[in-house]
Amino acid sequence: MAEQQDWNSLSDTEFRKIFRSWVDENCPMRLRNMRKQRPVFDELADWYHALADKGWLSPVWPQEYGGMGLNAAKHIIYVEEWARLGCPRIPDHGIGLVGPLLIEFGTEAQKAHYLPRILSGEDVWCQGYSEPGAGSDLASLRTAAVRDGDSFIVNGQKIWTTLAHCANWILLLTRTSRDEKVKQKGITVLLVDLTSPGVTVRPIENLRQEADFCEVFFENVRVPAENLVGEVDKGWNLAKAVLGHERIFLGAPSRPEVALSRLEQLAEARGAFADPAFVARYARLRLDLYDLGSAFERFAKQLRDDGTLGADVSVLKIFCSELYQKITEETLDIAGEEARFLDDLPTGNGEVDAMNLYLDSRALAIFGGSNEIQRTILAKAVLGLPS
């Protein structure tokens, strides 16, 4: 029976203690600090079901739908402790994207059908947004959905679809009409069964030789009209609405923190702290991490105070991703010629996944809106510069 309590009535300290204690006791050690950044559902099924049984799988869903109902402050603590304990990232598109979308914009029938199946793990979701010609410029998407009686017929292609090969449903952005002046118009959100005839999923191996991403092809795929979320041609605002709080978590200091701890570990083993030049570089990275933590806390306070974030939060992702890259580059320098190995490097006090972290740091500057796009947002929305 899922545990229900008014978690928001607890002090932050008390909630952090309760959450940390249970997660630390129940998250299997074999899943802690995994090299694999995005494990598939089957690798995490027991932990997924344990969280669901506890009622702690979906932190921000209202409790009436099986969630914890956390406010922004408690959600930040949830994410911080998750990272601090080295817990794996579960396949979370259903929890973090589809669930909130349906709770806010879905029909009662959609909520009653899909939400319990997300919590049970019967439906595993992926996100069908990016296309070969519409990545950071998502509004240029071309995957088409044409109404045909009580169905939509979908044709097109999505790419960089995370974990599509282990999902059975996809939240799909489609083009249902075209406005030559405003390309954000004419976009519609559909819920699509990936086992439907005409769907083809092809995994894409990444730099770490893992198949995190996929391309998904749709050839005359028939989607029931009841799988429409919101209104036809008005899906752009829905898509943006559920990505609001994601922006702050893309700039959370957890990745650079892990990377710096690995750098320290390797540097100690290789005697690098005897080199004044390295100590100076390390000190700069450490101070930058303190600054990132302070910046993250400033935006977190905005969420706690009024629940809104401005466009200036884009600076967090830029700062976080570039610091992550600098730390992992320094780690490769310390590793020397061994940096070329994908295998973890022994230090006498555990192992350091130097190359794995370096390759992962390349991706953070791209996904969730590339750093170039983040700089454009800052230039236009914060500095008021012309296009």
Rank of each mutant, 00 (worst) to 15 (best):
K240A: 13
E122H: 02
Y114V: 04
L10D: 06
T162C: 10
F213K: 08
N227S: 04
D148T: 07
V146P: 05
S120R: 01
R175M: 04
D123A: 13
G149A: 04
A72V: 09
K380I: 14
A339P: 01
A45T: 09
G69D: 05
L172W: 03
I77L: 15
V382Y: 00
L359K: 08
L171F: 10
E268F: 12
F213W: 14
E104S: 10
V216W: 04
G66E: 02
L345E: 01
A339F: 05
D46W: 03
L101D: 06
D306F: 14
A112W: 03
G293C: 03
T308A: 14
R38C: 12
K158R: 14
A241Q: 09
L309H: 01
L85Y: 03
L102R: 00
L171T: 04
R89Y: 15
T13V: 13
L285G: 05
D344C: 12
G251I: 03
P276M: 08
N206P: 01
N26P: 01
S21D: 15
A144W: 03
H245F: 15
P100T: 10
T331F: 05
V352Y: 03
F19H: 13
K183W: 13
L378H: 00
T347K: 07
D333N: 15
E108R: 06
P62S: 13
L303M: 09
K17M: 11
H113S: 03
F273I: 02
Q302S: 12
E351F: 14
I318H: 01
R117E: 03
V232I: 14
L309G: 07
D288F: 00
E231Q: 14
V229C: 08
L141S: 13
A45F: 06
W169L: 04
L309P: 06
L51F: 09
S370I: 08
A145M: 09
P39H: 07
E3Y: 15
I318L: 07
K36Y: 01
G128S: 01
I318F: 00
L101M: 15
N237S: 14
